[in-house]
Design a protein around this nucleic acid. Sequence first.
DNA 1: TAGTGGTCTAGACCACGCT
DNA 2: GCGTGGTCTAGACCACTAG
Lengths: 275, 275
Amino acid sequence: MNPDLPNSPVPEPVSQTGLTSSASYTQSNLAQSATQLAPTFSPLYQQIKALITQSLQSGEWKPGELIPSEVELAVRFKVSQGTVRKAIDELSAENLVVRRQGKGTFVATHHEARAQFRFLRLKPDVGIQQYPNNRFVEVKRIRAPAEIAKLLDIKVGDSVVYIRRVQSFDGVPTILEDLWLPGAIFKGLTADLLNEYKGPMYALFETEFGTHMIRASEQLRAVAADAVAAELLKIDIGSPLLNVERVSYTYGDKPVEFRRGLYLTLNHHYQNELS
Amino acid sequence: MNPDLPNSPVPEPVSQTGLTSSASYTQSNLAQSATQLAPTFSPLYQQIKALITQSLQSGEWKPGELIPSEVELAVRFKVSQGTVRKAIDELSAENLVVRRQGKGTFVATHHEARAQFRFLRLKPDVGIQQYPNNRFVEVKRIRAPAEIAKLLDIKVGDSVVYIRRVQSFDGVPTILEDLWLPGAIFKGLTADLLNEYKGPMYALFETEFGTHMIRASEQLRAVAADAVAAELLKIDIGSPLLNVERVSYTYGDKPVEFRRGLYLTLNHHYQNELS
DNA sequence: TAGTGGTCTAGACCACGCT
DNA sequence: GCGTGGTCTAGACCACTAG
């Protein structure tokens, strides 16, 4: 399969010329594009995984689309199907792609039903999870304050889209959320666009702005409601609220959203599984 | 290797001598399950995984111990090493075992350093995570109330161990926690034992009571401090606290602990990664 | 029937930890 | 040097989907 790999664990013996100086360490032909230093050993399937991730990032395969079959990718990358499989296994575990037996492997999308609540951990104490009603209180462009700039990895003063919304379950205001998005990416984002769109915000971001969220990091605290929160959530000042701050990342671990949510947890709770 | 298998992924066809009734205990399990394709098809590696899990549950291999090598297990179960590998891969992903290249595969334990904070998601806002100081306020045996009995899957009125403790970071009381444990399992659990022991409670449970926690489910809320919590945490009544309720499970998804923690989140936060 | 992912096997060599 | 887990390959067959 790879008759010209000097040192990879392929069946074929080395033979060939005296390239053995580099023999004890790394690479296959794959990594030659990147400058390769000695002690960085990376398994083949990790390199394949990186290449596939690049194709996802570059938009060669878009969310919801079918990617080439394992056999095709094996041919393209000149490795065995098993190696491609292991790479895709990890991408699947990280929710970057979704495998469907008999059909193929698809790029993950926030449009499909099973992803609707992927990042919303607030569940009702009784009954099943419903999709909330959205009311957008404010949408405007501002200059990034220092704190926001740092979290989004942009410059202080850069344009950011600021959004304030209230989410209700069964007509009960439950979440007050402030969001900050890099203005450079979310150019045409307006209140109208947000109001028209029904469904998860991340699905809209994906379709309208080509930005797919792949993971997020949250920090939770208990806080007391201030006057603004109290009014918007129709509760008393000082009521305990669950403060959830989130940074979301797209391909390449690039931060593209910061949000601060205040969750009313009288009839809901934040669910988390530890393992 | 198996040139004559018509439709079963199992190596040996059942057959063989009639004297293998004992020897075929595991074997027949495997063959049988794999043979009844119609109603429930379970891959071989899943069956192997179940068998290994049984050995963990039965105590054949105890926390911290080395389990047989992949080759040995492959021989024992009469499957290929690759199949055993896939089974162990999943067990490793679920943190039931820990693989160490060059050494072997070990049963996971709460004693090792890397597991110290596995179930404690409260992190300091600045600095690195420290292990808290424990003060046990109360340890006693009570009759299980309905709510507790339901969560622990025991009968109302059964004996349960009730524990109240305060955990401090750098001398600052930060966590007030109530715990309920099935009395039948935690027989000799006393305040003295808890006070003597330094380190994670789950490590003590493992060593003293043979109960290893493998996963947990948490529900979070924001609440206001009542008089008792205020006094023990040295804060004002009504201060917002993060209420964390947890059910922990041992092998076989058996619930063996319920706890309710009140976290002071002025200088700490609950960290969670979404993916 | 064809194509895809899913499972299983067998054998090779690599990286690591210990003796 | 040896045994362990880790990587890679090759080929077979199974399960699922769709034309």
